[in-house]
Amino acid sequence: MDAIQVSKLRKVYAGVPAVDDISFAVREGEVFGLLGPNGAGKTTTVECIEGLRELDGGEITVLGHSHASNGNGIKEQIGIQLQTTGLYPLHTVYELLKLFGSFYKEALPPDDLIAMVSLEEKRNTRSKDLSGGQRQRLSLALALVNDPALLFLDEPTTGLDPQARRQMWNIVTELQQRGKTVVLTTHYMEEAQTLCDRVAVMDTGKIIALDSPLDLISAHFETTAIEFEDRNSAAIEMLEALPGVKTASRDGGLVTLYSLDTPRSMEGLLDAARNGQLHFDDLRVRSATLEDVFLKLTGRRIRD
């Protein structure tokens, strides 16, 4: 059964479509990612599903309820973590969880929520005194107050340091193990690849690819990626002519070769360097990622 069905969703701001006729479904129990650069329409899409924005077209069904007929009923059953969360600055973690609990028919005890997001030590700290990562975990706990079956996380780790990001990922994984369906938006490839069962790649208001991260990668690349900084702007044709190389792309000085046979391609690369055809630095070999998929589909890198 699907937790969410989106059909031909449209949302227009000042005549410009922010979300342009997209359709997809989120299965119960999965972590579903909306991946794309800033301005791709990810946040608009989730806010339409959450009922925070009016639709300009299309239909949405959330947990079996049609969107148009049941706005607040849906809010009772979902948890929302907004991209930025404004809170009473002088209230403690415990007090805020208790306050938000009062907005729902049923709510989990604040201390259970605090344990879920490992904020025990900050239980009585005022929200203005929390670090970015702690604040983000509090915001997650607030989204969990009504013990929702369906959880929305909008850019949950943006602006966090790597350690805080790892901690957030662990919590999301635990939530999935508890049977929750999670929809998250992110512009971090690594995050989507680590957490998501399936990913919808968005660009300029459209979904340009939708599958599991591994299937997305293997559908576009049966290859590994060889990357280096190119010192003397070699022609793409020359690079694609190297043995084993399927395609090549260039982003400024950074060249990526997608190879079907890494050892042979490396040999050819080293030969070219010895002959003076190529001059490179910072050579590395890695498997293809979602970043490569995005680059291939749009011709741009996602963090632009």
Partner: peptide
Amino acid sequence: KGVLRRMGATPLS
């Protein structure tokens, strides 16, 4: 500051 926005994401009227 988005305090209202966050509360608006709950069933609070």
